Amino acid sequence: MLLPLPPGDFQAYLFDCDGTITDSMPVHYQAWQQALAGWACDFPEDLFYAWGGRPAADIIVDLNERHGLAMPVATVNEHRESLFQSGLATVEAVPGVLEHIEEAFGRVPFAVVSGSTRESVTASLTALGLLDRFPVLVCAEDYARPKPDPEGYLSAARQLGVDPARCLVFEDTELGVRAAEAAGMAFVRVPPPWDR
């Protein structure tokens, strides 16, 4: 079933990736739990979802501060990413969002704006057979200020040559919605797995 869209004549659709296009948040959370287990680092599920959209390296830095740990950020992040990619075979597209991608592809240009790395986004979209739908990928390494800063969304609009006010954002996290609003873009809030 298609998610309802706000009124407007939109000339581009900008999508977050994890939890928006790909129903990958449960797989991400499992990868986090496995990667942090050796450090006895507690990362509750409600905090994981509250921090959705943040770059993984920033999360590890904050977990170190919260728990008085000295986890090596790059090492833990690489391990987490490897665990996530090994679980990609179980990931499916988010219902309601996939239908919009199929309905609008070729009529409206698309971009992905994600707090995940290009490697992670590319692997996720490839696993679903959707990578070719997104000519523009704006990933964690492509902007300095993560969501809720609008930088990533404004960069995607620029690359597509579309006025930000004519872009529609699909987002599952509060940080992402705030980034879309700060960019002057309309948005569709994608419900979490337990509300679908």
Rank of each mutant, 00 (worst) to 15 (best):
H28P: 00
A89L: 03
S82E: 07
H67W: 10
C41V: 05
G38S: 04
A93F: 09
P26V: 04
A57L: 11
A56D: 05
G87V: 02
G87K: 03
G68I: 04
A31K: 12
H67N: 08
A57H: 03
G87I: 04
V91A: 00
L63I: 09
R54E: 07
V94W: 13
V76E: 00
T75F: 00
C41M: 05
T90W: 02
H28T: 03
Q33H: 03
P55M: 05
Y29V: 00
L63G: 14
D58I: 08
S86A: 04
F48W: 15
L47G: 06
L36F: 01
D58N: 10
L63S: 14
T75I: 05
S86K: 12
Q85V: 08
W51S: 07
A89F: 15
F43D: 07
G38Q: 10
G53W: 08
L83P: 09
T90E: 12
R66N: 01
A93H: 10
Q85Y: 03
P72L: 06
V94N: 13
M71D: 08
D46Q: 14
T90C: 13
R80K: 14
F84Q: 12
G87M: 06
L47D: 04
D62T: 06
I60D: 00
V76T: 00
F84G: 01
L69G: 08
S86V: 15
D46R: 14
V94T: 06
E65V: 13
R54K: 10
V73N: 13
W51T: 09
G68P: 13
A37H: 14
W39N: 11
D58Q: 13
T90R: 15
S82Y: 07
H79N: 12
A70Y: 07
A37L: 08
D62S: 12
Y29M: 09
V94R: 07
P55K: 11
A31Y: 15
H79F: 15
T75K: 01
Q33F: 01
G53Y: 11
